[in-house]
Design a binder for these strands. Sequence first.
DNA 1: TGTTAAATCACTACAAATGGGGATTGTGGA
DNA 2: TCCACAATCCCCATTTGTAGTGATTTAACA
Lengths: 189, 189
Amino acid sequence: MLTGKNVLIVSPNQLQAIGLKSILYEYFSPKEVDIQSEFDNSLNKHLAEYIFLSSDIYLAHQKKLQAITRKLVILTEFEQDEESFENPAMLNTTLSQTELVDKLETIFKKNAGKSEDDQNEKLSLREIEVLVLVARGFINKQIADKLSISLHTVMSHRKNITRKLGIKTVSGLTMYALLNGLIQPKDVR
Amino acid sequence: MLTGKNVLIVSPNQLQAIGLKSILYEYFSPKEVDIQSEFDNSLNKHLAEYIFLSSDIYLAHQKKLQAITRKLVILTEFEQDEESFENPAMLNTTLSQTELVDKLETIFKKNAGKSEDDQNEKLSLREIEVLVLVARGFINKQIADKLSISLHTVMSHRKNITRKLGIKTVSGLTMYALLNGLIQPKDVR
DNA sequence: TGTTAAATCACTACAAATGGGGATTGTGGA
DNA sequence: TCCACAATCCCCATTTGTAGTGATTTAACA
């Protein structure tokens, strides 16, 4: 299910992290699972497609994490309702091993399914980054500066985004980003 | 600071809730402070201007809470960085009483400033019409045609809208219109 | 009746986005 | 190895929006 994919676990609770790692290796054959005990900014550069985060770290660094386009899974000890299940997904750490595996399967399936259904053409990670910044109200020049790329590149990405999504307006892109959990109202300028 | 204002505390931790309640009454003279131990949907109908939430409840119901326009304060036990301090604001429950009062003051001040700016000038009916069309993804020329007015007039209205609301970006206006019930996602092009 | 605010229209200069062409790297998969 | 694709960069012409400074008409209202 995670074949060829990298996973990062960020949790100060080492036992919890190790437990999750062993479950992932046993049932989902990921390419690699890394563990960090602290949040740091190297996270942006990490290759992981899935990032598991303890709830405290998620809360404390929410602002920074919003720009992250990778799939987030929050580790919490609280029973969550079904609706709030996607993006960020949540995993109740008090569940039994079998239940955990089930929940993880659901999470991985949803994400896999989503990317196939929603668009015939998937956005690349970079395109999603640009989309998020557009939706948050930054102009192309600001996006270029933020991502340290040229204005031309930003425009290229935007051309591809509008083509792939078939959405031509900033309002439309904003709504798309909101409905797909890429941004939250408070992110917008 | 909270004069005449209602507050709701949602936390399964009763002691924590009662402690917060007593601090609020002692230092901020709110109109009323209610306590709920569980999250339920009556929250939408509650009059509270401020809602304090335990971090677990916030995490579990994040999706639903995104639509809430009331001011949220999350109760966490983790030291958060300064950046992630506004909306939702966070309150570290491990702080001393004096520190707590300081932090709360900061939170209330920030929000007070914000709401004053917001209410400064009301939009005229025509401005709201224009705002809605902007948020739905129409360009000025299309708006002019739809309203049978000149492009100049549309631009005039937009200038007034951005000045009154203090929102300069299309994304921001879109989100404003959405959060204020002026548009629905399906309206957007 | 004089004041005020809304709604309308206009000009200028400039900033930003769009839509159409391209090109070059590097990586990973078939 | 070859191909596809992501990511980067470039040029051009045109459209759209922004910012500042105006004016006129009408309707409300104290």
